[in-house]
Design a protein around this nucleic acid. Structure first.
Lengths: 330, 330
DNA sequence: CTGAAAGCGCTAACAG
DNA sequence: CTGTTAGCGCTTTCAG
């Protein structure tokens, strides 16, 4: 059906290899030849057969994206950006969703690895040893493993700004609502908020890990009240949103009685009432950059595995608008 | 590096063709042979080379998903379900995001078509003729084209329930805030609400198309007030959310003064205050089903192009909780 | 039930 | 600058 390189070659009156070169190394051909081949190709509607090329070169021309949950807005914007960048670099992007399951993740990786050039593994739930034993062309996102190239979100700037912002508002007692205790992002955020709270002499209460969801936030509200903190930072915006809703339902005003800060800057954070102050995490950039890193990795640039850190930034909104009241909450 | 079929064959003491058959048509081999080959394969960690198989068979083992915007929660859940289903059917899933651009969509399709078995085109923005001229292995989602297999969301049940619900609450004047005028979904919803309003003798005001976003909803609020309707159905939840926020800001109570109903049942709809009553659209089922339809299409079952309609259902929540007041709004 | 052999469409030395 | 010639790893007639 589809025209092959052979057909194009015949039509242009050259050999297959010449036709091939017209596309792959036009520099090595006389301009007129290239032109003739290109014309023939267009005439026949020639489309290269990627499977054949892959078989001959060993390069698949595709990379896989493995994420815990595409339906999560954070990963969705990551995927969107990565896909766009991949397309721009003429790489097909395979998508795999692990549904937060380490076992599924493991199987997906095994099945994908032999049929793509590389895998971008986002927020992997796998053990460290398992990750390094993969040996292969893998770029990690939101996971720090010295042996592997990775792109990380560096929450330090955002977290510093968040604690300073709260401190400036007069808050002296702070709580952090954890996300999944296993996640690299959570430990980073925990570490950073601890450092900053100490530095500024703000009391810090660490609240139990919650599912990083709206319901997790609802569940956390009681603990927030119980601990008596006047300000709270949550693992992410979803938790913040749930906490704000439940706090409000319990008669605790946000930001009147307690200030709330989330992380991620998902769309919802700006649409709620009050809108949530948040540490913006550039997952779109992470998507783009991770594909670039992968490209460099495949390009065979040896040396150290790449390590890219992406900056975060505090976005102040209504959930922290007011200075702390003199009295303590509820 | 990776073990080839040849290696497996040698290890098992059989020919390549036999080894091949052990995986593809084990019925034609003696059980003991199959067993031997399988054992050898596992021993060598054999992984079939998809590129080679594709070259030999013409089947790529992969299908592409083309969506307008993965970051849109509606499409995200579609993609998630489609991916899961594809994986289950041992089909790799390529992802392409058109960013709502018809030109990009066109180019993506052209580039993808030759390298996948088929394309699932979700909410295509292309012209009818362009779509049919594609001739190829395409399954449409949210777009009705007689010549092409498609899976459609049938809003009729949900819309009937919505208008009846509003009518039962005492509403006699209704407004519909349109989404993109070009979209198939929008015209369907417009048609259905018109039919239902007429049937129940409810006055209906059609409001200008808005961008199907939160900001579109904000912009629509003024028109909603101006038209004097006591209840409004919006193209989707995002618009509903924006409208509710702005209406509230203008001093119009929801659902006190006006009731609002959205479409989609995105997560955000249940998290807002008040939570949005909505017509739930099963995009996850659409994702799963569209892959199944594609599979059947590729299986070569001729006959009519498949046409699947998915039911919708009203989910009543706080944005329509109260019966209509005697007086008219603002 | 199993093997031999001919490609699928393309690339990549190797020769001119 | 261009053509010849082998394959890449797998499937698939065609013969046993």
């Amino acid at each position: 059906m589809a025209a092959t390189l052979g057909a194009v070659a015949k039509q242009a009156g050259v050999s297959v290899s010449t036709a091939s070169r017209a596309f792959n190394e036009p520099g090595r051909l006389s301009p007129s030849t290239v032109e003739r081949v290109v014309a023939a190709a267009r005439e026949l509607g020639y489309q290269p057969n990627h499977a054949a090329r892959a078989l001959a070169t060993g390069r698949r021309g595709s990379i896989a994206l493995v994420v815990p949950d595409v339906a999560n807005p954070v990963f969705a914007s990551f995927v969107k950006a990565a896909q766009a960048q991949g397309w721009q670099q003429r790489q097909a992007v395979l998508l795999a969703d692990t549904d937060e399951s380490p076992e599924l993740e493991r199987r997906l990786i095994a099945r994908l690895l032999p049929q793509v050039d590389g895998i971008v593994l986002c927020s992997s739930r796998l053990e460290l040893e398992e990750l390094v034993s993969l040996d292969a062309r893998i770029v990690l996102v939101n996971r720090e493993v010295p042996q592997l190239p990775s792109v990380l979100v560096d929450a330090s700037t955002g977290m510093r700004q968040a604690v300073e912002h709260l401190h400036a508002l007069g808050h002296r007692s702070l709580a952090y609502v954890q996300g999944s205790a296993l996640s690299w992002s959570n430990s980073e955020r925990l570490r950073l908020i601890t450092e900053n709270a100490e530095r500024l002499g703000v009391a810090l209460e660490i609240l139990h890990p919650q599912a990083p969801t709206y319901d997790g936030g609802i569940a956390a509200a009681a603990n927030i009240r119980a601990c008596g903190a006047t300000a709270v930072v949550t693992y992410n915006d979803l938790v913040a949103l749930g906490a704000v809703a439940q706090l409000t339902a319990m008669g605790i005003a946000v930001p009147g009685d307690v200030s709330v800060i989330g992380v991620d800057d998902i769309a919802m954070a700006s649409m709620s009432v009050p809108p949530i102050t948040t540490i913006a995490v550039p997952m779109d950039r992470a998507g783009r950059v991770s594909i670039e890193v992968m490209q460099r990795l495949l390009g065979g640039h040896e040396g150290e595995p790449a390590l890219v850190r992406l900056e975060t930034q505090l976005k102040v909104r209504g959930s922290t608008a007011e200075p702390v009241r003199k009295g303590t909450p509820a």
